[in-house]
């Protein structure tokens, strides 16, 4: 479904982001990641797949293949989309048990992006992570 999680792993992202010290380079990188994330086909942008954020919706579609979970996520905002790519790098192609075991808060803390996962951000990211975790729970 996308290279995130397979070609580009969470370790790769931690590695790359650690090279940057300024917020500008970090955000440029995140925006670029978002541009590489394939768009979700319009026909899948349904109410069922919507994860409502206060400011902009996030869409999430999941599929299970050979015991692994695959996700496509999309947003109209570039930075949110980039952050979705960061999340999918951690979860895509993983087994439900791997998804459940992954420490997403620790990952975002390491990336120094934890503020984006806070509930107050209202960007739908937190709700998306919760939905991925629920999907994994239901599939296990």
């Amino acid at each position: 479904m996308s290279e995130f999680g397979t070609e580009i792993t969470s370790a790769d992202i931690i590695d790359t982001l650690s090279f940057f010290d300024g917020w500008e380079e970090r955000y440029k990188y995140i925006i670029d990641l978002g541009k590489e994330l394939p768009a979700l086909d319009e026909r899948y942008k349904t109410d069922e797949n919507i994860v409502r954020g206060c400011q902009s919706p996030v869409w999430l579609r999941s599929e299970s293949r050979d015991g692994a979970l695959f996700f496509v996520a999309d947003s109209d905002a570039f930075i949110v989309k980039g952050l979705l790519a960061v999340v999918l790098a951690a979860y895509n192609g993983k087994t439900p048990a791997e998804v459940a075991a992954f420490d997403i808060d620790g990952y975002f803390a390491e990336l120094n992006l934890l503020n984006h996962l806070s509930a107050t951000r209202g960007n739908g990211l937190k709700s998306m992570v919760q939905r991925i975790q629920r999907t994994a729970h239901e599939a296990s």
Binding site: W23, Y27, Q55, S56, S75, D76, A77, F78, I79, V80, N123
Partner: peptide, 13 residues
């Protein structure tokens, strides 16, 4: 060129 939320996040930074 972008969503209002993108602008807001970059202003916050």
């Amino acid at each position: 060129f972008a969503h209002p939320q993108d602008v807001g996040m970059l202003l916050d930074q």
